[in-house]
Amino acid sequence: MFSQKVAQQSLRRLAVQQPYAMRWSMMGAASPAAVAIGKNVQTRQATSSTNTEDPTQILAKQRLNRPVSPHLSIYKPQITWIGSSLHRITGIALSGPLYLWATAYLASPLLGWHLESASIAAAFGALPVAAKILLKTVMALPFTYHCMNGVRHLIWDTGRALSNPSIIKTGWTVVGLAVSSALALALI
């Protein structure tokens, strides 16, 4: 109640201050006093249309005149947005098969599948050496990239290495470390 009275009194004081209101009108804007007492109400004339066109056709014609928004194809590829995209993609690529395998592992006794460690190791051991290295590389590369880039993001969370040169340098460092560690894991 008291705050309402104070607000009303201050608006009344503003309404009676002519030099202040004159200053606002000379700037081309409405004074606070004019806004407070309702003298600055904008109105718009109603227009009636006798157009018999189908409204969906009008909208379709308007869409043809709108500009097309740019796509990624017009931008020069940069390590920052490629690295960010790869981080998300590798996260999905790692979690999706994990959930599928875990579900299959839980359902395997009911379905008669043999997904225990011994049978998986025996199946993997029967593969040729080139297939083993290729399969291990395909499995290790998303894992190592996602881990290395996750460490990079944790460093960013501390507020370090946020300048453009250091972001570019750490991006290429993550790529190099991920590839070299994936190859090392594949050759073990």
Score class of each variant (00 low, 15 high):
M1K: 14
K5L: 15
V6I: 10
L11Y: 10
L14M: 08
Q17H: 09
Q18C: 11
Y20H: 14
A21C: 13
M22C: 10
M22R: 13
R23L: 13
W24M: 11
M26A: 07
A33G: 07
A34M: 12
A36Q: 04
G38T: 03
K39R: 12
N40I: 00
V41D: 11
Q42D: 07
Q45A: 09
A46R: 13
T52Q: 10
D54N: 01
I58C: 02
L59T: 03
L59F: 01
K61M: 00
L64H: 04
L64G: 05
P67K: 02
V68N: 00
S69A: 04
H71E: 12
I74R: 08
I74Q: 08
K76G: 10
K76M: 12
P77V: 10
W81C: 12
G83C: 06
R88P: 05
T90K: 02
G96S: 13
L98T: 08
L98Y: 05
L100G: 04
W101I: 12
A102C: 09
A107Y: 03
S108F: 05
H114P: 01
S117A: 14
I120E: 03
A122G: 10
F124V: 06
L127W: 05
L127G: 02
V129K: 15
A131E: 10
F143T: 12
F143I: 07
Y145Q: 06
C147G: 09
M148K: 07
G150M: 03
W156H: 15
G159S: 07
R160Y: 09
L162K: 09
L162V: 07
I167T: 06
K169R: 00
K169I: 00
T170D: 10
W172M: 04
V174T: 11
V175W: 04
L177N: 03
L183F: 08
